[in-house]
């Protein structure tokens, strides 16, 4: 029976994982801003979080080391490459690259702030937990 704190932490954990993944995607875009034919991508955060939250409390994702292993119902939100979409571009360049460095930088900073917010939420959840544990003394 998951408690309220469990639920809160599960949410923060999923959201932090997805924020970290989005940070990777945006870093890839920035790194490839001069790569011919590279298409900028982004994470559909709302959909990814919704499916990750739907999977929380369900089965745990297991790594398959043999082709004969059965699928253990890996959480769909954590599936590799799920919810990653190509970004619509305003000004494509001649070499087929669709990265707009300014847009990517803005998203990168925004995502970093959101990540920090979630870290603060986790910190304060743990602090609340600590206070509750100490209150009996």
């Amino acid at each position: 029976m998951p408690s309220k704190i469990d639920k809160e932490l599960a949410f923060i954990q999923s959201a932090l994982n997805l924020r970290a993944r989005r940070q990777e995607i945006l870093a890839s875009n920035i790194a490839n801003s001069d790569t011919p034919n590279y298409k900028a991508r982004d994470l559909d955060f709302r959909a990814a979080l919704a499916s990750a939250m739907g999977a929380v409390g369900g089965s745990v994702a297991l790594t398959k080391t043999s082709a004969r292993h059965l699928d253990a119902g890996a959480s769909s939100g954590q599936a590799a490459g799920a919810h990653v979409k190509f970004r619509a571009t305003v000004q494509p360049s001649l070499d087929g690259n669709t990265v707009d460095p300014d847009v990517e930088r803005a998203h990168f900073t925004e995502n970093a702030l959101n990540y920090q917010f979630l870290v603060d939420r986790a910190t304060s959840t743990f602090r609340t937990l600590g206070r509750a544990l100490e209150s009996g003394r």
């Binding site: 990777e24 995607i25 890839s28 790194a31 490839n32 590799a80 490459g81």
Partner: peptide, 13 residues
């Protein structure tokens, strides 16, 4: 662009 591993296909160096 070069992928950084099979488990993280979205991470492209």
């Amino acid at each position: 662009a070069v992928g950084l591993g099979k488990t993280t296909p979205w991470a492209q160096g």
